[in-house]
Amino acid sequence: MRISLFIPCFVDQLAPQVGLATVKVLKKLGHDVEFRAEQTCCGQPSYNSGQWEVAREGAIRALKIFRGAEVVVGPSGSCVAMIKKFYPDLLKDTPHAAEAKELAQRTFEFSEFIVRQLGVTDIGATLNKKVTYHDGCHAMRELRLKEEPRQLLRAVRGLELIETEESESCCGFGGLFSVKFPMISTAMVQVKGGALARTGADYVVSSDPSCLLQIGGWLTREGKPIRPMHIAEVLAEGLPANV
């Protein structure tokens, strides 16, 4: 299968290792991977800020960019939810409605794609660490992914998966919410990060790099030993370098 990558803008600029790990895992599974370089940002910041006209322009650009792609796979529950759930809403009653629906049907979050579409749970990764999983709200509540990432993690050799109290609590990121209402956002990450730190895990793993930016940023500032790691990075651990 030829997979078109959907790399969130801040993964591109600030966490490229997540994109590289995504490529590595998808290739390991025997698929062709392409990256359409016209892509930048899905427009969610504008959508969430009520700037729907602006966001609509981004959505229409994305439809064009991914036109003809067999499947689109992205390592972010939040950005994938933007395409899968919010583009159709944003573009309903426009000439783009049908295409938005159609793109939504062939766009998948990374763990969703591997488990639900490919039917694979064991990539062959090895990581001798204790990890806990953070459910990003968009992955859990918009895309209804809960078991899929856990299935993938359980299959990693040497990995011990433990659950966190507050595993379903929001980390407090919320895009621009984190900087428009920083005091509330911080209070939320204190609750989340505190619970994560108490698990004694080596890594907090998530399918949402934006949550990891928030959680990791707070954990580092507070000097907590637990580190953030994207699920694609976990699944790329121990795979041969050139697949």
Binding site: I7, V11, D12, Q13, L14, A15, P16, Q17, G19, L20, V23, V33, F35, A37, L176, S178, V179, K180, P182, T186, V189, L213, Q214, G216, G217, W218, T220, R221
Partner: peptide, 29 residues
């Protein structure tokens, strides 16, 4: 605006030298 509000309570990871798109372009892909 925004960046300072973030940094008041949270760090940002060090910025990588190369973006994903650069690395993709530079690699065999």
């Amino acid at each position: 605006p925004y960046l300072s509000a973030w940094l008041k309570t949270r760090d940002l990871p060090p910025a990588p030298a190369q973006s994903f798109r650069q690395q993709w372009k530079d690699s065999s892909h």
